[in-house]
Amino acid sequence: MQNIKDTYQRITDAIIEQLEAGTKPWIRPWRGNSRGSLIPRRATGEAYRGINVLMLWLASELAGYEESTWITYRQAQDLGGQVRKNEKGALVVKYGTFTPKAREDDDERSIPYLKGYTVFNVEQIENLPERFYRPAEEMQATTIPLLETVETFVRKTGAAVTYGGTMACFRPAVDDILMPDRARFASEVHLYSTLLHEISHWSGAKTRLDRDLSGRFGSESYAIEELVAELSASFLCADLGVAHDPRDNTATHLESWLKVLKNDKRAIVTAAAKAQAAADFLNGLQSLEQSKVA
Results as ranks from 00 to 15, higher is better:
Ala294Glu: 13
Thr252Asp: 15
Arg182Glu: 08
Leu195Glu: 11
Thr118Cys: 10
Lys88Ile: 09
Lys88Trp: 02
Gly80Asn: 03
Ala14Tyr: 05
Glu151Lys: 03
Leu58Ser: 08
Arg84Trp: 07
Tyr8Cys: 05
Tyr163Gly: 02
Glu46Phe: 08
Val92Lys: 01
Leu282Ser: 01
Trp70Ile: 05
Thr44Gln: 09
Gln286Tyr: 03
Gln276Met: 13
Ala238Thr: 10
Ala229Asn: 02
Phe281Trp: 05
Glu198Thr: 03
Lys265Pro: 06
Ser203His: 01
Gln140Asn: 10
Ala102Gly: 09
Thr97Tyr: 12
Met167Glu: 15
Ala294Pro: 06
Thr207Phe: 04
Glu66Arg: 10
Gly158Pro: 02
Leu191Pro: 00
Arg247Lys: 15
Ile27Asn: 06
Ala168Trp: 08
Leu91Cys: 09
Glu126Asn: 15
Gly45Gln: 12
Ile51Cys: 03
Tyr48Glu: 01
Pro40Arg: 01
Val242Arg: 02
Val150Lys: 00
Ile27Val: 12
Ser193Arg: 03
Thr157Val: 03
Glu46Asp: 13
Arg155Glu: 03
Gly241Ser: 08
Glu61Lys: 14
Pro112Thr: 01
Asp107Trp: 12
Asp6Trp: 09
Gly215Glu: 01
Ile71Val: 11
Pro180Tyr: 04
Glu123Cys: 13
Leu285Tyr: 02
Val154Ile: 08
Asp210Ala: 07
Asp239Thr: 10
Ser221Asp: 14
Arg28Thr: 09
Arg171Phe: 15
Ala76Asp: 15
Met167Leu: 15
Glu225Ala: 02
Leu147Met: 15
Ala272Pro: 02
Thr194Glu: 07
Trp70Arg: 06
Ala59Asp: 05
Tyr95Gly: 09
Arg131Lys: 15
Ala205Ile: 13
Ile268Tyr: 01
Val119Met: 14
Arg134Thr: 14
Gly81Met: 04
Phe153Ile: 03
Gln276Trp: 00
Ile11Val: 07
Leu258Pro: 02
His201Pro: 00
Glu87Gln: 10
Ala251Ser: 14
Val174Trp: 07
Met139Gln: 15
Glu108Trp: 10
Asp175Asn: 05
Thr162Gly: 13
Ile268Phe: 00
Leu258Cys: 06
Tyr73Ser: 12
Asp107Pro: 06
Asp239His: 12
Ala47Trp: 10
Ser221Trp: 07
Thr152Met: 08
Glu137Phe: 08
His201Gly: 04
Phe120Ser: 11
Ile224Leu: 07
Val93Phe: 04
Thr250Ile: 11
Ala21Arg: 09
Gly284Ile: 07
Ala271His: 02
Glu46Trp: 09
Ile268Asn: 01
Gln77Pro: 14
